[in-house]
Amino acid sequence: MQGAAEAEPRQAGTGQGQHPAGQAAAGGLCPYWRTPEESPGGFPAGHTHLLRRIQAMRARTSGTGSRHRLGSSEMAQKSSLAVPYAVPVLLVCFLACVATGVELSVNNHAADFTLSTSSGTPISLSCLVQNSSKAEELLWYRGDGQVDLKDGNKVNISNICISPATETDNGVTFTCKLRRDQSVKVSVILDVQFPPNVTEDETVKAEEDKDVTLTCNAKSNPQGQATWYKNDTILTLQQNRYQVYQTSEVFQLSITKVVKSDNGTYTCEVKSSLGTGRKNFHLIVEGNKAAAKQ
């Protein structure tokens, strides 16, 4: 990874906020809890309505209903054929597995987020496995490229450092993933802020009656605003003579049919809350060669 080095790995933990079935869920197993008494930690919170449904189905099929009572042989036959709570138990299992599924967090964020910083500042990202008591291997990606992690910095907790962050890291996404299930992931978008960075001064030569465009490339975050000067005085934009165009990184001044009086130094000044960048264009208007030949 360009401009990045790994931080020293910290001692891997076992995860936080573990559910009693965390270990089983992490291993792909799910305990078939039927009642709170059979569960090591009681029924999962909010699932007591499923327990009531299971108990009601047991009651309806137990042969103690008010309509009729089954004989002993019929009772044995019915109980051997029916599995009254199979579907609810599977549903409870599914919900328990979801509730205790492995999760990741990056810098204490369990969902994707944007991290703002200044250019030249080191960034540390720490990915932690949650809800698992087993060893879980982690992966880091910078965009689509996988980051090379050292041994000892891959299991349950993994740290990377971008040192220092530069303007080329602005907008880049870093993603931590669980190796065994890469749909379990958390992404960080870097918002690296830096002052306007303009290119070097230029000398521009043009013939009379020709159109001239001065292009100023200036990257900045947050985006800057441009002001044009001629010989250190703010340029008055005369209609049908000057046109200004700009994007987030490109600022242009077009002059229609230049004349000798357009000679001078034009300055593109891009200013943001973090600073100012300036680029000078030394415009030299020469005589029209085609007209001179006539």
Rank of each mutant, 00 (worst) to 15 (best):
T233H: 13
A218M: 11
D211V: 06
K185I: 05
W140C: 04
D148S: 15
D191F: 04
G152V: 09
P164K: 07
V155K: 04
T173A: 14
R179K: 15
T256E: 11
S133C: 11
I234P: 08
T247M: 08
V186R: 00
K210H: 13
Q246V: 06
L178I: 07
T236S: 14
F174S: 02
L138N: 01
V212H: 01
Q223K: 15
V192R: 01
T203G: 11
N170S: 14
G224S: 11
S261P: 05
K185C: 10
F251R: 02
V258M: 04
L190P: 00
P196W: 05
E207T: 09
A218E: 01
E137W: 03
Q182S: 12
Q223S: 14
N221R: 14
K257H: 12
Q223R: 15
E207R: 11
L235P: 04
V198D: 04
T213C: 08
N153H: 07
I234Q: 13
C161R: 15
V259T: 15
A218G: 11
T199R: 12
P196Q: 08
T199V: 10
L237F: 01
N131Y: 09
N156R: 04
R241H: 10
A226N: 14
N170Y: 07
V172T: 13
C216I: 06
I160L: 09
P195G: 07
G264M: 02
E208Y: 05
F174Q: 01
A218Q: 03
F194G: 05
I255D: 00
Q238W: 02
E200V: 11
D148R: 13
A218K: 06
V212I: 09
N263P: 06
E202S: 12
F194V: 08
V204Y: 00
E207I: 07
L138G: 01
Y141R: 08
N263T: 10
L139D: 09
T233D: 12
K257Y: 08
S132M: 03
Q225D: 15
E249K: 13
Q223C: 11
V244F: 00
S132V: 06
V250D: 08
Y245E: 12
C216T: 05
F174R: 01
S163I: 05
L214D: 03
A226G: 10
G143Q: 07
S261R: 10
D211E: 08
Q130R: 14
Q243F: 04
A165P: 03
I160N: 00
D201F: 07
N170T: 12
V204S: 03
L237N: 02
L235A: 06
Q146K: 15
V258K: 00
V212E: 01
A226P: 07
G171W: 04
E167R: 15
W228D: 00
G143L: 07
D148G: 12
A206D: 06
K177H: 08
T247S: 15
E136S: 07
E207D: 12
L149G: 06
E249Y: 12
T227R: 09
E208P: 06
A218C: 15
N217Y: 13
D169F: 08
G143N: 06
L138D: 00
Y141T: 05
V155G: 04
S220K: 03
V184T: 10
Q225G: 12
K134G: 10
V184R: 02
C216F: 07
